[in-house]
Write a protein that binds this DNA or RNA. Structure first.
Lengths: 201, 201
DNA sequence: ACCTGAACACCGTTCAAGT
DNA sequence: ACCTGAACACCGTTCAAGT
């Protein structure tokens, strides 16, 4: 028996990954602690050695999602260094694409399943870090005269809110067909950003 | 025995109302078919005589929520007839207030628990009607030169998206404290609308 | 037509016990 | 420290049966 003690050295991460996989394959309704445990091959009680409760596992999965989101946003901005407006547009598009390609995890990140500010410090940290990264992009746009001058954090909430609202409504099927038949999501998003811009470029 | 046949003549609406009450008192996690049945005083199986499944009850509750939302939006607009900009601002504020005062039902209306376009014609109807009401307000703003000229439906999605995104992020606790300490939700929303306006009024 | 009782397969969570 | 087995209270859903 050469193998590891008990099951494997890193049950915690195995559980998180199994959760992400289930979210991908079965959507948000399919996620349960028992199913996660079964997929990893441990007893129903085993996850409780690593996560206080269901919420706590969801917090870990959401944290994972935010890390991925941060990475793609940062990459999009880095790819257009020196061109603030393009940074904003492409980061926005990266956000939309993340939401469309990872619908279940995106929803769980924001769908309030994570109610209380019940600590989850890793989640708070990466979520703040992501916000700050967007503030940087917005500030660069203001300095370049692309976005109106206003408190950068306020402008960021405004831009992010717009983006988040449009994609959320789209994912819920709430956007009228009279709109979706005539405009793509990308066009809708571009229109929104264009409205916040000082001048058309 | 003077009473009604079986339980009461309108178990269907009693179930919907009980669901709304539970949402208010216990939030979204507390809602279950069994609890709804218990509160009304019927067996666990009784709801199935009126609703195909859990989703179907949720659809009915969401429909109820949309009716209420429509009423308050319409009232806000009616109260400022002849002043398109004020109509827009007050309707927007009514939306925000509805979300903040009826958090659980607002979340269930939009939180994608209602996945498929699995019919629910009453839901689709009131949801469309609400959208069209907002389009009217937006169109009036464009005619009055308050909002930029653009396809009204596109502009409506943009305005609605902004609003919906900001309040959703706020309800999830995703809006940074560096923003919330300095601005009220109303100020954030006003800022968003101001940005879409042609000129400051 | 409208409802009950009992059953089935699934949950989250706890706790004593094993290594 | 890390995991199992068994238990408890709760789900959604179905179905035969009652009025």
């Amino acid at each position: 028996m050469p193998a590891k003690k008990y099951h494997h050295g890193d049950l915690e991460n195995a559980l998180i990954q199994a959760g992400v996989d289930i979210l991908f394959q079965e959507g948000i309704e399919g996620l349960s602690l028992r199913k996660v445990a079964k997929r990893v091959g441990v007893s129903y009680a085993a996850p409780y050695a690593h996560f206080k409760d269901r919420q706590s596992l969801i917090a870990a999965i959401s944290t994972e999602g935010f890390k991925q989101l941060y990475t793609t946003l940062d990459a999009a901005a880095a790819a257009h260094a020196g061109d603030p407006k393009q940074q904003l547009v492409e980061a926005a598009w990266a956000y939309i694409q993340f939401a469309m390609q990872n619908t279940a995890i995106f929803k769980i990140m924001f769908s309030g399943v994570l109610e209380k500010e019940k600590d989850y410090p890793a989640f708070v940290e990466i979520s703040h870090k992501t916000f700050e990264r967007v503030v940087e992009i917005v500030r660069a746009c203001q300095d370049a005269g692309v976005l109106r001058s206003a408190p950068p954090e306020l402008m960021t909430v405004s831009v992010w809110g717009q983006l988040h609202g449009v994609i959320s409504l789209a994912l819920e099927g709430q956007i009228s067909h009279t709109v979706l038949d005539r405009f793509t999501i990308r066009e809708i998003v571009s229109f929104g950003i264009e409205q916040m811009s000082l001048s058309k470029t």
